[in-house]
């Protein structure tokens, strides 16, 4: 396998007496989708924030292209090619698609001493980039508020890819979406992978993860409980390994008893 673009080596993170992450190792290679699975409170968010430079790890190290790295800030992380698409997507609903696409990195055009926002370039680029991702915009000047949830997710991903992301961290990109919308986003993940981008796909939906994932890492109560390649594991095994598995069987039995008791 290719060399990982970014890797965490036995990283731990504490918040006072709380152990948020303990001895977690995780990596992603170019052109690979690595799924991070875990229930609420498993430490997924802490792991993302450590990867994206919001938190510095208390123990262990982060390597980018094999070199130990300390991220000074989220902007620093972004500059080293690791882009995080959070659930809030960092979009402004009342602004146009094109303006959102270039927000904070506006293309400028010089007219003598005056440089002004190159709206034509922004419109064209946003339209083309989204079209290349399979999203046909009606109008690049339409407000983001008029897009569907899936389209917004795609816009945020397309923006990160356009600005040179080598690794995409996607935080629950499909969790709030309907079936059709989710499939659009999953397709986009596969396309990003085909472009040689490493994708870290955080989810608690095994069905979505299993379709696109190459490797799966399970996180439970702050610890890694294993990393599996797709060839080593099938969907049902993965489901069982996820928080749901054993607990659901137990719950089923318990509910069965309750039902029996109440009918008796």
């Amino acid at each position: 396998m290719a060399e990982p673009y970014v890797e965490l080596k036995s990283v731990s993170k504490y918040f006072g007496s709380v152990v948020a992450l303990k001895d977690v190792s995780f990596d992603v290679c170019p052109g690979e989708v690595h799924c991070l699975l875990g229930d609420n409170g498993a430490g997924k968010s802490t792991l993302i924030k450590t990867l994206s430079g919001v938190y510095a790890p208390d123990e262990g190290e982060i390597r980018v292209q094999g070199k130990p790295t300390r991220f000074a800030s989220p902007a620093d992380t972004r500059n080293s090619g690791i882009a995080t698409v959070y659930q809030d997507l960092a979009l402004v609903p009342l602004m146009s698609v094109a303006r959102n696409f270039f927000l904070g990195r506006e293309p400028m055009r010089k007219f003598g001493p005056i440089s002004q926002f190159d709206a034509e370039f922004a419109n064209r680029t946003a339209y083309d980039e989204l079209a290349a991702m399979g999203i046909q915009l009606r109008d690049p000047e339409q407000p983001v508020g008029t897009l569907s949830g899936g389209e917004r997710q795609c816009l945020a991903i397309a923006r990160a890819v356009y600005f040179g992301a080598k690794v995409l961290i996607l935080d629950e990109p499909t969790s709030a979406l309907g079936v059709h919308q989710a499939s659009v986003v999953l397709k986009l993940i596969v396309q990003s992978k085909a472009r040689g981008i490493g994708v870290i796909f955080i989810s608690h939906n095994v069905h979505h993860a299993y379709v696109v994932g190459d490797r799966f890492t399970l996180l439970k109560r702050g610890r890694c409980t294993g990393t599996y390649a797709k060839s080593e594991i099938d969907r049902d095994q993965l489901l069982n390994l996820m928080a749901g598995g054993k607990e659901l069987v137990d719950l089923e039995q318990e509910l069965g008893k309750v039902a029996k008791n109440s009918s008796a």
Binding site: D88, L89, V92, L94, M95, L103, G104, Q116, A119
Partner: peptide, 28 residues
């Protein structure tokens, strides 16, 4: 009007009022 619609600053104005948090996350 020029500032608002044709300058970088204008983009920041809309973003600051529309969704300040998103704007900050993008480096505005």
């Amino acid at each position: 009007t020029w500032l608002l619609t044709r300058s970088r600053f204008g983009n920041w104005i809309f973003a600051a009022g529309g969704e300040a948090n998103a704007a900050r996350n993008l480096g505005v």
